[in-house]
């Protein structure tokens, strides 16, 4: 993570890199492994390989998001490593990590010695196809932290072009691990939320949205192609605007200056929710902020940026967004 335009993009982008890694397009591999009989465990992981074990792994160390996803299906890891402080992470709201060892709360830093004392038999993290690495093993992670991979085999579903696929990937992994997926977690609730979202969008013809992250002296616009949930929103009918010139070195965003804030005009602004309301304050202070029509009209909310791993979170976010969209005005821009 050290080689993206150094110091240029600002921390917002670094954070995105941290959370989003550099995975991109290729869709998640069919994670159709199954726990075959005889106690033999096998799983087709995000990297396309099939991993097996003589018996179903029980002592799991996972990336915090992966852990949250597995815990929805009753699989509780023994240890987790997170990208930042667990209590503040927008993607870990309401996750009960009591009894779970926290092995790191800074991106790229995992206490492998402590992890070893947990004697894990499986490590779980997202597979970033762009970086060809699992969460916790990406480039930029400290070498001594990467030794986590020596403790057990590392698996996880791929971050593809849909956050739904990632959530489903974890459901599948949980099933092979003996989790209770019969109820489908909060799947039914999620599907209702999708319907509601689609209905809300359908009722607002011509409504456009723009996903942004103002930071320091920059006004960064998200590129939906690299944001699985924004691709989902587009699939469900919302017109999320696509910036024309993504940054060459870090195509997750097009970075604009405050002089250029009126480049893209949408009816609804979506702030990156990982550093909200800090990024709102940054924009508020810019004298040109009112040139963004949606901002001047107060038509803004947040979007769940790069962290969705659970049906329940996705359902909550979709219901909230549906409500905002129902009240939005397609004539702002």
């Amino acid at each position: 993570m050290s080689t993206f335009r150094p110091a240029v993009l600002g921390i917002a982008l670094l954070v995105c890199c941290v959370v989003a890694g550099c995975g991109s397009s290729s869709s998640s591999a069919p994670s159709s492994g199954a726990s075959a009989g005889d106690g033999q465990w096998s799983y087709v992981s995000g990297d396309g390989k099939t991993y097996t074990a003589p018996e179903t792994p029980k002592r799991i160390v996972a990336h915090a998001y992966a852990a949250a996803a597995l815990m929805e299906f009753g699989i509780k890891p023994v240890g987790v490593y997170a990208d930042g402080p667990v209590k503040d992470d927008v993607g870990l709201k309401g996750v009960d990590f009591s009894g779970v060892e926290i092995l790191g709360e800074t991106w790229g830093e995992i206490d492998v010695e402590q992890a070893a004392t947990l004697r894990p038999d499986l490590i779980v993290g997202d597979w970033w196809s762009g970086e060809k690495a699992y969460s916790g093993l990406e480039s930029g992670v400290k070498e001594r932290s990467k030794k986590i991979a020596d403790l057990a085999q590392v698996v996880g579903p791929s971050v593809g072009d849909s956050a739904v696929e990632l959530v489903e990937g974890y459901e599948e992994l949980a099933r092979t691990l003996g989790g209770d997926t019969s109820a489908g977690g909060s799947r039914a609730e999620f599907e209702r939320a999708v319907e509601r979202f689609e209905a809300a969008v359908a009722g607002q013809e011509g409504l456009t949205a723009l996903a942004i992250s103002p930071f320091g002296q920059d006004y960064a616009v998200a590129v939906p192609k690299h944001a699985p949930e924004l691709l989902d929103f587009q699939r469900w009918g919302l017109d999320v605007m696509v910036p024309r010139r993504p940054d060459p070195e870090f195509p997750y965003w097009q970075t604009l200056s405050f002089e250029q804030v009126d480049t893209y005009q949408a009816d609804l602004l979506l702030f990156d929710d990982r550093n909200y309301p800090g990024n709102l304050k940054v924009l508020e202070k810019a004298p040109t902020a009112d040139r963004i029509k949606a901002f001047a009209a107060g038509a803004y909310t947040t979007w769940p940026a790069y962290w969705l791993h659970r049906y329940s979170d996705y359902a909550d976010e979709l219901n909230r967004l549906a409500e905002v969209i129902e009240g939005a005005d397609p004539g702002v821009a």
Binding site: A7, V8, Q217, A220, R245, D247, P248, T255, L256, S257
Partner: peptide, 8 residues
Amino acid sequence: VLPSGELQ
């Protein structure tokens, strides 16, 4: 110097 945005 940058195609979009600014360098500090």
